[in-house]
Every structure is written in C-alpha cells, then in structure tokens.
Design a protein around this nucleic acid. Structure first.
Lengths: 223, 223
DNA sequence: CGATCGATTGAACGCTCTCAATCGCAGTGG
DNA sequence: CCACTGCGATTGAGAGCGTTCAATCGATCG
C-alpha cells in the first residue's frame, strides 16, 4: 500500500513571489515534497485518490495490468508535469517511480476549495487535465493505427519535445517500459531503434540516451 | 466548419425541480438543443472549443485521423453521456453524429462561471471529465495489449453495460466504426463476431443488433 | 572472474491484415 | 413483379509484420 506516501515530508518553499510582492502561482507552495526511489510505487490501482502530483525530478509511469500480467503504460510524466488530476474516489491505475524521483503532492480537496475563489487556479487545473486527456487521445491513435516504426518515431519526437536539451534525449525508462507504452514487445523496440541507428537517423551512445541526428526523417516516418 | 452548430436551437426545459421545489441539476436546463443528421459533423479538429455536449438521443463518435486516412475512434458517446468537457481553446479531434442525433450544448464559460458558486456543479464537471479520462486509459490497455477477440468481447460488454435493455444491445455504428475504435480491420471485426455467433456466445439478428447469450463466456474471454 | 540483468540479435511462427469475391438487403426503375 | 444497382457486411486465400522462443552480448557488481 502507498497510504503513507511521504518518505520525507516538508513543505516546499519556492520562489513564488513576483517582483512586486504579489504571490504568483502561489498554490505551488502548497505542495508537499516526497521522494520515491527507483521502481517504488506512488499509488496503486484501488487506492483512495486524494492527491494530485507534480514531478519535480525523475520520471513516473502510469500503468494498468491485465490479470495474466500483460501491462500497458498509459503515460510517462517528466519534471514539471502533473498527473492524477482527476477521477473518482479511487485510482484506476497505478503510478510508479521509474528512477529516483522527487514529487510534490497536493491535496485535491484543498486545491479545489482554493479554486473556488481563485479563477486562475481553476483554469489551470482544467488546462492541465485537458492536456492529459489530449495526450491520451493522441496515444490511442498511436496504439490503434500506427506501425512499429511510426510508434518509435512518435515516441522519440515526443520525448525530445518534452525534455529537450539540444538533440540529446534522455530515456529514463527501460526498453520494457517503452514496449509497454507503445504496445510492442521489447524485441521490436530494440530492433527498430537499432535500425534507426544504422540508417543514421539517431545515435545510441548508451541504451538510456538517444541523439536525434535527423529530425526531418523522424517527422516523415511518424506519418 | 461547424461554427454555427444549432440547426434547431431551443432552450431545453427539463423537469428539473425536486418535489420540494428546489432546483436539482438545474444547470441541465442551460443546455441548447441541437439536432444533427447521420454522419454530420458536430465539430472538427481545429475548431474553437467553446461548448460541452450531452447526447440526448442517437450516438456520437470522436475521431482522429492520420494524414494518409487511417482513422482512430477515441470514443463513442451514447444518450446521457457528456463529451468535449475539457481541453484547450481548440478541439484536437472531431466529433460526428453516427445516426440522427439530438444534443444539448452548454457554454463552457457559462458553466465554469456558474461552477464558481455552485460546488456541486464543479464536482460534477470534474467527475464527468474524470470518467472520460478513465475510459481513455482503459481503452489504451485494450488497444495496446488485447487480442482481437478480447477487444470484441470487451466492446460488447461495455456497450451492454452502457445501453442495457436486457441482453439485447443496439450497435448504432457500422463495422468500420467498430474496427476504427478497436484498432482492427472491418474483416477481423466481422470474422470475430461471426465466430462468437457460431459458438453460441452471441446472436446477430441483424448487423446492428447483438444479443448476449453467454455473458460468462464473454467475461472470460475479455481476459 | 563468475553472476546478474538489461539489451541486442536471430530464426521461425502465427495473428491480423490485405486483396478480392460474394452475399444480402434496400432502393430504383423497367 | 422482377431485374438492376449500391452499399455494408461476410467469407476466403495468401502474405506480412510483429511476436515468440532462444542464444548472445555487454556492462555492472560482488
């Protein structure tokens, strides 16, 4: 169980005042910091859903399981991104740290109470939730209709757009995670990446780092 | 373009007062009725997203296209269900009537303004949005990890749960729609349904109606 | 140096797709 | 009343993409 999430629990004090002294994004200061080691559970399917999370550092995966063990990863979350914004009283998927990860946890109830008087906060919450649904729909298109190489190309471009520092993209997750995210097997992921490397489209200095050598080509094969 | 959606536009007056005269679900009366004929567009990818919709009668599909024409249906919406609750200023998918359909359209801005003073409404909107995301995540599992017959079984059980009148389930959508929803081809959908019929698991009085003869079997094959 | 674990590579299989023909029903016109 | 047409659905045969099973590689760590 992940009932007592915070391994370390400190109120986070960010530089959250504008030059003229008005609180800006002040609600971010409501977050409670928590650290989770690699592969640790953040919450499980069936847990009470009382919090919203923001990744500070590290990476998170949202997963669903079939009873025979087949796994689908519904999404990855990178630093700065929010997850578990919405839903009923209970989580319908589980969340795990991919690597050692720092999180901020926000009480859903507190946030919604505050949103009643803070129009901006309310809009931000809806915007964040909307981004998550949009991403889910985009991913359905990938899972339902794209070929293996199109999936890999889309994945690499998406990761690059989200974490970009030049053309080097860090992949915090394993090949198995990528496969379970893209609806492929680990072998197909590996083969496709190798082929992209042989073509000169990407370089793979090591399994957790990709260098995009030819974005145009990736964009073309993304379809 | 679907900028001027309402073909017919009348304020809907529902029986929206409780026995003791207190407005219940009063915001449903804010809806503007619209009718769309079979295959008509409700909104398109790129349209300004100003409204939230509720299906009154008929059925709606949410679709996304790849540039070469491959199509993914992200969801079907049946009477009583809401769609397009969230997202940015612009729709990232299109919505079409599957059959002649009656809708209620709600101004997103009006609803959110009202939600500022109506805690119940705010909670309902979040709950509806959460249900949509949850359904999307469940569908990713189907698209990424289930076999053709598991997909069909899940689909039939889901449709039955949502529209149930006994064991007869109406399928307002074509085989092509089902295929594009389940990430299969029309031929595979047809073959799988035929096989279920031969097994005695279902009956197909006509292509748009399924009778569930053996739910246990469907549940077992859903995995 | 051996053990372990993730990643890569190879070979063969099989599920689903592709291509194509046929069916069945509804609508239309002779 | 019956051919003709059109369209969605069904059925068949063969091919291909991704999977499965299995061996090997390579880096990390005792």
């Amino acid at each position: 169980m992940s009932a007592s999430l915070p391994l370390r629990q400190d109120t986070v004090h960010l530089h959250c005042r504008s030059p003229i002294g008005v609180p800006v994004e002040g609600w971010l200061a409501l977050g409670v910091a928590a650290m989770r080691p690699r592969n640790a559970e953040i919450f499980a399917e069936g847990d009470k859903a009382a919090k919203i999370y923001r990744v500070v550092s590290g990476a998170v995966r949202i997963t669903k399981l079939l009873c025979d063990g087949r796994r689908q990863i519904a999404g990855f979350y990178l630093p700065g991104e929010f997850f578990a914004l919405e839903g009923g009283a209970v989580h319908r998927f589980s969340a795990e740290a991919i690597v050692d990860t720092t999180l901020q946890a926000f009480s859903r109830r507190a946030l919604h109470e505050r949103a009643e008087t803070d129009r901006g906060l309310s809009e931000q919450l809806w915007s964040l939730a909307g981004a998550n649904l949009e991403r889910a729909q985009e991913h359905m298109l990938l899972l339902g209709r794209k070929t293996a190489s199109e999936r890999i190309a889309s994945f690499l471009l998406d990761m690059a757009a989200r974490s970009e520092v030049g053309d080097e993209v860090a992949l915090p997750m394993s090949r198995q995670d990528i496969a379970d995210f893209l609806g492929l097997t680990i072998e197909t992921v590996s083969r496709t990446l190798t082929q992209l490397e042989r073509e000169g489209t990407i370089a793979l200095p090591n399994p957790r780092k990709v260098v995009l050598k030819n974005r145009r080509r990736l964009l073309a094969m993304e379809e």
